[in-house]
Design a protein around this nucleic acid. Sequence first.
DNA 1: CAGAATCCTAGCTGATACTG
DNA 2: CAGTATCAGCTAGGATTCTG
Lengths: 133, 133
Amino acid sequence: METLRTRTKPPETFAECTRAAVPMIQVLGRISGKWSLYIIMALLRGPMRFSELQRHVEGISQKMLTQTLRELEEDGIVHRTVTPIIPPRVDYELSAMGRELQAPLAAISDWTVRNGERVADARERYAARRNAA
Amino acid sequence: METLRTRTKPPETFAECTRAAVPMIQVLGRISGKWSLYIIMALLRGPMRFSELQRHVEGISQKMLTQTLRELEEDGIVHRTVTPIIPPRVDYELSAMGRELQAPLAAISDWTVRNGERVADARERYAARRNAA
DNA sequence: CAGAATCCTAGCTGATACTG
DNA sequence: CAGTATCAGCTAGGATTCTG
């Protein structure tokens, strides 16, 4: 399948673009939910219980933590282990696939670090132009 | 500033995680809008006029094309050139910063290609488990 | 402890109509 | 051609309450 694989030339046809973009957008949609990245980054440090995650991911509601974890679990990025004791204990950890996300995320992170200032400048200039008009 | 730069060890403290994640999430939020990636990928092939973009990005409404282009322009990822003739001509092209997104996006794309099947399997198993319950 | 269920609102999005 | 303006539907997300 033709994709956006590392190479010098971008996709040529629209069909190529679409086939390359659709799964990427699905994944980005998942990992760019408001909280997914925070959870993944917390779990990169190691397995964690539900309540630990809630403490580590500042500001997340119980609903969104549950919901986001379910989505990540559904995609096989996060593993969920229930220990049926009272009170219940549930541990979350990244799957191998989830840990492999670190490199791609680092690539995006690097881009944001390299370009953060340029983005900020661009926004200022954009705002200035808007005000001039 | 401490970030998620390419390295073997993930961020250690929550503060590190947050500082690394916040700008990344902003960027992902931008580029993972429903249409941004399609537009960026179309423009990776070269500059394009508004109407060309609309033809290349199948299904996008005129409103969302305008809106998404404005956001990408605001961030300095896309450059907009107006030629004041009648009828008006407006060309869009990726900035240097925008073109640099290709490598990070390729990294994510590679992940999706490598793991697409595993994600699909995980979803099936998840659905099967849900039905069993 | 780890959630499920409910209610509610802001904002994204599409469809449509109009303009320099 | 390349937009702007307006309206309406949907849903992501937060706050709150309840439970095994």
